[in-house]
């Protein structure tokens, strides 16, 4: 169901979106060209990827990295670049390596 779009008088001043965690309502991962693939066996849980991800897309549970949030990950590759043990591979979206995951 398409949401009814608001008229200009109903929008907050300055285009501010009040309230927290609003990006969760908006999936923005669709234009990713490359997908980071996490190799759990290699991972040493240093959380460098979580620290550096510019899009807050490294998922964490009980202080442990649990994978990527593909609804928001933009495929920038920063996590793969920073990982000290090469536990993250960047693969083209739509490729066979992607499909396996």
């Amino acid at each position: 169901m398409a949401a009814k779009l608001k008229g200009w008088k109903d929008l907050p001043m300055g285009g501010v979106v009040p309230g927290g965690a609003t990006p969760e309502l908006n999936k923005t991962g669709s234009w990713r060209a490359e997908r980071p693939i996490w190799n759990e066996e290699k991972c040493i849980q240093c959380l460098q990827c979580w620290l550096h991800c510019p899009d807050d897309s490294i998922m964490i549970k009980e202080q442990k990295m649990t994978g990527m949030d593909y609804d928001h990950c933009k495929g920038c590759g920063v996590c793969a670049g920073i990982c000290p043990v090469d536990a993250i591979d960047m693969v083209p979206e739509g490729s066979a390596a992607c499909a396996r995951r």
């Binding site: 779009l5 008229g7 200009w8 929008l11 285009g15 501010v16 979106v17 009040p18």
Partner: peptide, 14 residues
């Protein structure tokens, strides 16, 4: 709150 969000053709005009 979120400041300076992206606005597509559906909201930029408003």
């Amino acid at each position: 709150s979120t400041w300076g969000p992206f606005a597509m053709p559906d909201y930029y005009f408003e």
